[in-house]
Amino acid sequence: MSDSIIEEITKEQLKEGRDHFKVGDGVKVHVRVVEGGKERIQIFAGIVLARKGGGIHETFTVRRIASGVGVERVFPVHSPLIDKVEVDRESVTMRARMYYLRDRIGKEATKVKEKRIHEQRRK
């Protein structure tokens, strides 16, 4: 009984359309940043390493290489501060979590098997 009430309370805060990106995808996360009373949008682009949790607790990790250093950010999926999540390239993954990318150096670090979108279009 109590669990259904908890679900109801959090349901209205869930954002719709936040399940279009998956692990391995190259994404651009548009984050709302308030600076000096002004709001602007900051983009964090990288590869989704993991999606964890469920419901309102769900988070996703994005990794990018910024000036030679790996940077990871964890976002709550349903955060109101996320304006939108753009998917740049879809990928085919053999893993649920892409943690092996952390050990890679150079070009390999951003290499994920891509879904061949143009082939699908030809069909």
Binding site: S2, I9, Q13, I56, H57, S79
Partner: peptide, 16 residues
């Protein structure tokens, strides 16, 4: 009252 459990919600300042 009765304690039903815990969860997270976003407040007006968008904090979880």
């Amino acid at each position: 009252g009765t304690k039903l459990g815990m969860t997270q919600v976003y407040d007006e300042d968008n904090n979880l």
